[in-house]
Amino acid sequence: MSALLEARDLVVHYRDVPALTGLSVSVAAGERIALLGANGSGKSTLLRVLDALQFPDSGTFHFAGEPITAERLEDRAFSREFRRRVGLVFQNADVQLFNPTVFDEIAFGPLQLQLPKSDIRARVQQTLQQMSLEHLKFRSPHQLSGGEKKRVALASILVLDPEVLLLDEPTAGLDPRSASEMVELLASWRGAGKTVLTATHDLDNLEDIADRVIILQDGRIIADSTPFHILHDVGLLQRARLIAAHRHTHPGGAKQPHPHVHADPLTPPAAPTSDRFGPPADSAATPPIPRTPATPRAKDPD
């Protein structure tokens, strides 16, 4: 079976700063993938390329076998079709909520795709109910809480019923309850046939929202495996700056202090040190952290 999303050797620069450095990934229809990586590792850029908001400096991106380029997207019919099938939920919900009310916000996508107006009304109404946003219908975005904003942003994409959902940190900045509601929603899509890519820092719920985990570092993929394997590879998680060496939660909830030795400040930095923030992102070597028991549930201190 050919891949639904196929990216080859993507290179993207922002002015002179590299964001993606030769990244290739292939996603089959119905896969649920989590993208992990520290801040600035290229997750958001990858999602933007996959949503055809940004085009790579070099490399190719194919959607359902069709090459996606700026010229191709100029074709209205094609672009409409692509937008209907692929949806991106932005990390900053404020960016995505640009309409005067929640109702208008959810209606925006269908209106742009020029669906019949009666159909739009029915769809919006249905989405409002599904996402339990009915009571917020006529609110302005600035009158919503952070969790509500995220829900509306997600609803504004779900109303289009896209095959591919790209989610940029859907749980970031949410209180624990809103976050767990969001995770429940994402988990409920298991087996629904949707292709979902979720960029996240949240290791706790990885197994609920994804069947495959990709770790990004410095604009390329450093690991691609199942959640179980990834979560058990402490060295990998530390290298990707996803857990800190000294503070992380072990099964049973105990925060165990890990003894460590600071390098003598007088000796040159040749001796590998382990500071509070974990090893530097670019150090490929496994840091000299005392071996800890395997952590199926490692937690990012942030």
Binding site: R48, R83, G87, F90, V95, F98, F108, I157
Partner: peptide, 13 residues
């Protein structure tokens, strides 16, 4: 820039 990207993402032309 961001808002424009969000609009394009939902089919704004």
């Amino acid at each position: 820039t961001e808002v424009h990207a969000a609009m394009r993402s939902r089919g704004y032309h």
